[in-house]
Simulated assay, not measured.
Amino acid sequence: MTARRTIVSQSEIKRTLQAALSAGLRIGRVEVDHATGRVVVFPEGAAPQAAGPDPDELLK
């Protein structure tokens, strides 16, 4: 069985983080989706976004 080719390599993630740091961004969280190759860098102190409207508010 042959090895599966990675969509996102460790060196690509490292370059992304170095670029963010050199731009002055204080990194709070990093999400990597290996299935799609998407790398998302969140700044320090950024609140996670809700997936949708609050169900309690919809029932009022």
Rank of each mutant, 00 (worst) to 15 (best):
K60F: 13
R4N: 06
K14S: 12
S9K: 10
Q49H: 13
G52V: 07
G37N: 02
K14V: 08
M1Q: 12
I7K: 13
H34D: 09
A3K: 12
D56L: 11
V39P: 00
A3W: 06
D56T: 08
I7Y: 09
R15Q: 12
L58A: 15
L59D: 14
R15P: 00
A51N: 13
Q49S: 15
G45Q: 06
V40Y: 04
L25N: 08
R4I: 14
A23Q: 12
S11T: 12
P43G: 10
Q18N: 08
V8I: 10
I27G: 01
V8D: 00
S11V: 10
V41F: 01
D54W: 04
V41D: 01
D56K: 03
I7V: 15
E12Y: 08
E57M: 14
G28T: 01
A46P: 00
A47N: 07
V32A: 07
E12R: 13
A51I: 11
R15H: 09
P55A: 01
D33P: 07
P53D: 10
A35L: 15
L58T: 11
F42N: 04
A19T: 04
I13Q: 07
D33R: 09
A20K: 03
G24R: 02
A19W: 01
L21Q: 14
V39T: 02
P55Q: 02
R5E: 04
T16E: 10
G37T: 03
A23D: 15
F42I: 00
L25T: 06
D33K: 09
L58S: 09
A46M: 12
R38A: 09
Q10V: 14
S11K: 13
K14W: 07
D54T: 03
P53C: 07
P55H: 00
L25K: 08
L17K: 05
F42P: 02
R26A: 15
T36E: 02
A46W: 06
G37K: 03
D54Y: 01
T36C: 02
V32E: 00
A51R: 11
E44Q: 09
E12I: 08
G28K: 03
D56Q: 08
V40A: 11
D56P: 03
I27Q: 01
P53N: 07
L17T: 02
T16G: 09
